Simulated scan of single mutants.
Amino acid sequence: MSPAVPIPEDVREEVLSLAREGVPRNEITRRTGVSTASVSRICGGPDGVSFDRSATAAAVQARVVDLKAARIGLAASVLDDVQLARQRMHGAEDNRAFLDGAKAVAALAGTHVRLVAVDKDDSSDTEAAKSMLGKLAQALGVAAGEDADQAEDGGVA
């Protein structure tokens, strides 16, 4: 590794001047030949010039929205594929073709569920699922108790 060569004072001043003008870090690197790490170090020094990251944040947010829209579109297309696979499955001429169609339907439906789940906020869904499962367990317990009562009375369980 070669020893670090100090950046001349005039180059440091140029970096700071460009940063104060609002020139982005990568552009300062292109114009001055100073690495982005050095530009950051120079601007983060006692003179305290910071870079506006709002454009980057907005671009990242726009990309997140675009990817979500793409996933929604893909999920809709997968539902179309599920419908086609179901039609082929029900039109199958033998059991093997029917089972192959059923596997395709299951795989496509699972893909759809996973695509939709990526964008769900599961904090409230988890509580709703727990509540639903608790009610189901309670209902099954009541039903099981009724079946036991009927069996004791000679009824059909």
Rank of each mutant, 00 (worst) to 15 (best):
33 G>T: 00
120 K>G: 11
5 V>S: 06
51 F>G: 01
95 N>E: 11
97 A>L: 04
26 N>M: 06
96 R>A: 04
126 T>I: 13
48 G>F: 05
75 A>Q: 02
132 M>Y: 14
14 E>N: 07
144 A>G: 06
152 E>A: 15
93 E>S: 08
106 A>H: 15
38 S>T: 05
53 R>W: 04
105 V>F: 03
32 T>E: 07
35 S>K: 05
77 S>R: 12
87 Q>L: 07
155 G>V: 07
1 M>Q: 10
116 V>K: 09
71 R>P: 07
64 V>H: 11
67 L>W: 07
97 A>P: 01
103 K>E: 05
81 D>K: 05
50 S>T: 14
121 D>T: 09
70 A>G: 06
111 T>C: 11
100 D>S: 08
147 D>I: 03
22 G>I: 01
35 S>Y: 00
52 D>W: 09
134 G>Y: 00
10 D>C: 06
57 A>C: 09
32 T>C: 10
1 M>K: 11
37 A>L: 14
67 L>C: 01
136 L>Y: 08
66 D>N: 08
87 Q>F: 06
155 G>Y: 08
109 A>R: 02
66 D>M: 11
154 G>Y: 03
36 T>R: 09
37 A>V: 12
145 G>E: 13
34 V>W: 01
48 G>E: 13
119 D>K: 01
137 A>P: 01
29 T>P: 02
12 R>W: 00
79 L>F: 08
139 A>H: 01
26 N>L: 05
1 M>I: 00
140 L>I: 10
40 S>Y: 10
142 V>W: 06
34 V>D: 00
22 G>S: 01
15 V>Q: 02
123 S>K: 13
75 A>Y: 02
69 A>W: 07
70 A>Y: 03
38 S>V: 05
35 S>V: 06
8 P>M: 10
67 L>Q: 07
58 A>I: 06
146 E>Y: 13
47 D>K: 10
16 L>D: 00
79 L>P: 04
123 S>V: 14
24 P>Q: 05
69 A>H: 12
154 G>D: 08
92 A>D: 01
142 V>L: 11
135 K>I: 13
69 A>D: 12
50 S>R: 09
79 L>H: 11
36 T>D: 10
71 R>E: 04
137 A>V: 13
74 L>Q: 10
145 G>C: 06
128 A>E: 07
27 E>R: 00
155 G>A: 07
3 P>E: 02
146 E>R: 15
113 V>N: 03
152 E>D: 12
150 Q>S: 14
62 A>M: 11
136 L>A: 12
48 G>Y: 05
107 A>W: 10
136 L>D: 03
22 G>K: 03
28 I>W: 03
118 V>M: 14
115 L>H: 09
81 D>E: 05
24 P>W: 02
35 S>T: 13
49 V>H: 01
9 E>D: 15
